[in-house]
Computed example of a mutant assay.
Amino acid sequence: MRAMSDPHLIFDRRLVRLRRERAAGTQHAVAPVLEAAAERLLDRLDDTTRRFERALEIGGRGLVAPRLRERGIASVASMDLSPRQAASAGGLAVAGDEEWLPFAAGSFDLVVASLSLHWVNDLPGALAQIRRAMAPDGLFLASLPALGTLQNLREALTGAEASLRAGASPRVSPFPELRDGAGLLQRAGFALPVADVEDISLAYRNPLALLRDLQAAGETSALRARDNRIPPRDLFPAALASLPPGTDGTPATLRLLTLTGWSPGPDQPRPARRGSADTRLADALGTKEQGTGEAPG
């Protein structure tokens, strides 16, 4: 395991585990949001006719495993950094780390990770380990917060702290962008990679409730670069007061990045050999091909 002094370590994984462990008793306060995220992710599973027999769900908070069993998958293992979270799913529970998967190659034909991989330090490495644990032609589904999530809160906290102190410390995690998604899957060796985003829009009558929900879900900052000093007394009141109001209250956005990929298999579609086409693209589209205006050579 890498030392905590490693500059590539962004998150304090011990703190992530402790917060997820504590959240096992409080996350019922945000159950509608967690359930909506799980359902949207598993909708992708319903789009395929492939039948799965051995599934691994990662970080599902007791919500994903039952839904997989309802879809006819009898063998479902649940893994989480927190033992309480893993056990809450029922069935086979594994307290494990996404950065050090404890499974043999080819163990599963389906892996689902709902809102958990955003706390991983080495996401490309974690995805590569997940692919290794999958059988050929297995399906991988994951959702994680994307850039744009809690953007208003990030800007409000940064602005308020900058006005109260000489500078501001990061208080909201960095999130990946949509353009990163398919590239991460390809880098990990997945075939047919697809990435897309969709928003879950929330509104709070009391902006302080947003912070309470984040705490209840165990989603408060676990950045190693966080400022461990006691924050100024006026920081959070000033930040929350600066949040832009909406028609139904203080808006907050959970932007979900959904990743879909397949472990390589012999029967999957493959791109044709380069130069093997026998029809011009212009003919297929029914358009007239035009030159660039440059002389040949």
Score class of each variant (00 low, 15 high):
G148F: 00
G167N: 05
A195F: 00
E53I: 01
P231W: 00
V30T: 13
L139A: 07
Q215A: 15
A160G: 09
A284Q: 15
S116L: 04
D97I: 02
L45F: 10
A126H: 06
G286K: 01
L259H: 07
A31T: 09
A239D: 12
L127C: 06
A217K: 04
L144E: 02
R22Y: 15
L184W: 08
L63M: 10
G291P: 04
F175T: 01
G291A: 06
L42A: 05
A216R: 01
L254N: 00
Q268K: 03
L15D: 11
L68M: 07
D122I: 04
P296S: 12
A105M: 03
P32C: 01
Q129H: 03
T253C: 12
G90I: 11
G297P: 14
G60Y: 12
R132C: 06
G261W: 01
Q215M: 04
W100D: 15
R69A: 02
G91H: 10
D227Y: 01
R67H: 13
L101E: 03
N228A: 14
V172C: 07
S78H: 15
G25F: 11
A203D: 07
T220K: 11
L223I: 03
S276I: 02
Q290C: 13
L153V: 13
D248Y: 09
E177L: 07
R84A: 14
A133Q: 05
F236G: 03
G159I: 01
D80N: 09
L202T: 03
Q268L: 12
A3H: 07
L240F: 09
R280E: 11
T287H: 08
A104N: 14
P244Q: 07
T49M: 12
V120K: 04
L235D: 10
D234V: 13
Y204G: 04
G96I: 11
R255T: 13
P32A: 00
R84C: 11
T287C: 12
T292F: 03
V33T: 06
A38K: 06
L240W: 14
P145K: 08
L41N: 14
G167E: 00
R69I: 01
R54K: 07
A24T: 09
L184H: 03
T48P: 07
P251K: 12
F190E: 13
E198Q: 14
E53H: 14
P244G: 10
I200V: 15
L9D: 05
E289G: 13
L210C: 05
P83F: 12
F140Y: 05
E35D: 12
P7C: 05
Q186S: 14
T260L: 08
G125P: 03
A282M: 00
